[in-house]
Design a protein around this nucleic acid. Structure first.
Length: 747
DNA sequence: CAGCCTCGAGTTCC
DNA sequence: CTCGAGGCTG
């Protein structure tokens, strides 16, 4: 089935062949995704896909009649280029209650140092339920259209954005660089018409306008997007070569003048009461707006204040989304399954009679943990007026944040008489080991450790996941298959796959789910990751409490594997002593409680530590480890345990033998205060303490509350007292607020 | 030592 | 996206 002809006659043949392949792929997708029953073998599917794509390459005109595109789950080699946002596209914090809005206002006033009665204006606008899009204009010409992606890197859907009537192609008189952000959405009327059209032709229909908009915007063929009635509201901006206006309100007016649609329900509000009242207004109009909204967004109006407030790790401090109450649905709870996670956590999942909630059919929902089923929260307080959840119950389901299905409530009047309280298993459903719940812990965990196959599989899934080794073509399914076969028991085995089983690929090729291409691609993808960044390696190990951020912190501190392993080894005696002290303290607490007296915490800890005789070297290594920003005793202990466990350590060594670790660059110092420890004391007149801290940290400085030997700079305002004196005694560089601002170039 | 913020680990559906 | 818990700040 090789196709190469480009002659006129060849083109006719190519066209027919193209349509044949397209039908085959579409049918196979439907069979696979909707009926869960593949009609052709994966090898045939792979071959058809490859031929289809190569035809499309040799005959670009075929794009006009192309309707098949690779689905989610296929290798990421989609037709869209990656775009790194000049300014990150963040999400918003949420408010559900009026009191959350009051908290939002209070924390802003705190941060800015404003009293409760000082003037502070906000804007309020409907939150459109669509997809956000960032449009970049250079010298007034639309150059890029990027989806949000993970917030840092999105996809360029420029060709598709150009087909949207609400998006101007050119903006005369725009700043040299103008990034406009807003929401792509589909109106109810257009959505209904589109689905009717699709249904008529026997095509698939979309579950809701949001999915329809998302599916339309991500078409590889812009002509398909053109036929979809997408719209766009502008509400924000990214990089700008010049400011649009001094206020949010003014900036939105400018965007409107540039030719964008802006939401007519956007209002400026002077008080939180005005915000809430506008929220109620919008909520009342919700059904007649003609498009989906899921709440109201509040923003600080003054842009200078927005700049001062800045951002937390994932959300701006100056904006919040006040969400409408979630849609609810009732259905029957048919069963409760227990899943075993990577750390051994047993999580109950509700199996539900399928029900539509918020435009999506839901048949699974999380039940969180043992206590949640019983009707208790983490503090042991009643959350469902005493009602537990039982199999057979009529339960109320909603999608938390309009995404994750949750079981919220139970209808006791419909409870079967024969029903009994659910008994949470006390042993692991996968390996049979005891499942224990530690004091004060909400989760029950399988104690099987290395012998539990479920934990092993989940650890492997974690290892290949996006933030860890990110091995393309090796997803959950493949990991499960390889593990069942006994080919991959631990991460190191992944790198031995080709050598052990791949000669000629014969064994793999004959398996279900594997074609020639996918096997070759997989081995290439695996080889690619033999060179791995140190932080990804640490994260990939799956040590409890060591997540993406903790792994990065450790990588930056220790720089290479040997240093990390040596630190863990050296600190071991101190780690053991720390745990002994913890346990002694726990025993003392229990004893003190039963004797009705206060626990002697400090004495107990000291005694326990003393009896362990920790060498100074170990104590120093432990101090160094737990002194890393964000690394405390819990994480330190967990790390120490992993390296001290001989099974785990041997597995680490086997893995390391397969890899070349890319070590991080030593921290750059492009700012005069990078890496310095700074203390602020006295009254600050040009900024609040929170602001000063956030600004210093953004420049790579560490801000501390007290002066010590480690302090590099003391910034002393008027009224500085003991700290200034101590700094003088220690000979620490001291400056006033202006000196600091000059140093960091913020004068 | 309490209260905040961030992180980790869990989850669903497309 | 949410919850719980770890770590840091005031």
């Amino acid at each position: 089935m090789s196709i190469s002809g480009k002659s006129a006659a060849g083109t006719e043949t190519a066209r027919a062949e193209f349509l044949r392949l397209q039908d085959m792929l579409l049918a196979a997708d439907i069979a696979y995704h909707q009926k869960d029953a593949p009609e052709i073998s994966d090898a045939d599917y792979d071959r058809a896909k490859r031929d289809y794509l190569s035809l499309l390459e040799t005959h670009p005109d075929l794009a006009e009649i192309a309707t098949w595109s690779e689905q989610v789950g296929a290798p990421v080699a989609s037709g869209f280029g990656k775009i790194t946002h000049a300014q990150r596209m963040l999400s918003l914090g949420n408010a559900f209650e009026d009191s959350d809005v009051a908290d939002f206002d209070r924390s802003i006033r705190n941060y800015l140092g404003l009293g409760p009665d000082a003037a502070l204006a906000y804007t309020a606008e409907p939150k459109i339920d669509g997809l956000s899009l960032s449009l970049r204009y250079e010298n007034g010409v639309l150059m890029q259209a990027a989806t949000r992606g993970d917030g840092s890197v999105g996809e360029n859907v420029l060709a598709n954005a150009r087909t949207i009537a609400d998006i101007p192609q050119e903006i005369p008189g725009a700043p040299a660089v103008l990034e406009v952000r807003g929401e792509v959405y589909m109106s109810h009327a257009d959505f209904d018409a589109l689905n009717a059209r699709h249904a008529e032709r026997g095509g698939k229909t979309f579950a809701n306008p949001r999915n329809a908009a998302a599916g339309s915007l991500r078409q590889l063929d812009a002509e398909i997007t053109r036929a979809r009635p997408l719209r766009f509201f502008a509400y924000s901006w990214g990089e700008l070569s010049e400011a649009l206006a001094p206020t949010q309100t003014g900036a939105i007016a400018r965007l409107k003048a540039f030719g964008f649609q802006t939401n007519p329900l956007t209002r400026r509000c002077d008080t939180t009461d005005a915000l809430i009242s506008h929220y109620k207004d919008i909520e009342a109009q919700r059904a007649t707006l003609g498009y989906d909204i899921d709440g109201v967004v509040y923003k600080v109006d003054e842009l200078a204040l927005q700049a001062r407030l800045g951002f937390r790790s994932t959300t701006p401090r100056w904006a919040i989304a006040h969400k409408f109450p979630a849609e609810l649905a009732w259905t029957r709870l048919e069963g409760i399954d227990i899943q075993v996670g990577r750390t051994g956590a047993l999580s109950p999942v509700a199996r539900l009679a399928p029900v539509t909630v918020g435009g999506v059919v839901v048949s699974n929902a999380t039940l969180h943990n043992e206590d949640y089923i019983r009707g208790l929260d983490s503090k042991g307080e009643d959350i469902r007026s005493g009602k537990d959840i039982r199999i057979g119950d009529w339960v109320q389901v909603y999608r938390a944040g309009d995404v994750i299905p949750k079981v919220a409530d139970v209808d006791l009047s419909k409870r079967p008489e024969t029903s009994e309280p659910y008994i949470f298993p006390h042993c692991c459903p996968e390996c049979g080991s005891d499942a224990v719940r530690e004091e004060g812990d909400a989760v029950r965990r399988c104690s099987g450790g290395v012998i539990c196959p479920a934990q092993a599989v989940e650890k492997l899934k974690h290892f290949v996941s996006r933030a860890a080794f990110d091995i393309e073509g090796m997803g959950a399914k493949q990991v499960e298959q390889f593990h069942t076969d006994g080919w991959v028991k631990e991460p190191a085995d992944i790198f031995k796959l080709a050598e052990r089983y791949g000669t000629g690929l014969q064994q793999l090729k004959n398996r279900e789910g594997w074609g020639d291409t996918s096997a070759t691609n997989l081995f290439a993808a695996i080889d690619e990751k033999r060179n791995i960044e140190f932080a990804r390696l640490i994260f990939g190990l799956g040590i409890r409490h060591v997540g993406e951020v903790g792994a990065k912190d450790l990588a930056l501190h220790y720089l290479n594997w040997d240093a990390l392993a040596a630190a863990a080894d050296r600190a071991r005696p101190a780690a053991v002593a720390h745990r002994a002290a913890d346990e002694a303290e726990e025993r003392e607490r229990i004893k003190a409680q039963s004797e009705g007296r206060r626990a002697k915490v400090k004495e107990t800890r000291d005694a326990a530590t003393a009896s362990c005789a920790v060498p100074t070297e170990a104590a120093a290594a432990w101090e160094d480890l737990t002194g890393v920003d964000g690394i405390g005793p819990t994480l330190g202990l967990s790390l120490s345990d992993a390296f001290a466990n001989e099974h785990e350590r041997a597995a680490f060594d086997r893995l390391l033998a397969e890899l070349t670790v890319i070590e991080p660059d030593a921290p750059a110092d492009d700012s005069p205060v990078a890496g310095k420890t700074v203390v602020f004391t006295g009254t600050l007149e040009k900024m609040t303490r929170a602001e000063a801290k956030a600004r210093a940290e953004s420049l790579g400085a560490k801000v501390s509350g007290s002066v010590s030997k480690k302090t590099d700079i003391l910034v002393a305002g008027p009224g500085a007292g003991s700290k200034a004196k101590k700094a003088a005694d220690l000979g620490i560089k001291t400056m006033d607020e202006d000196g600091w601002l000059a140093l960091i170039g913020d004068a």
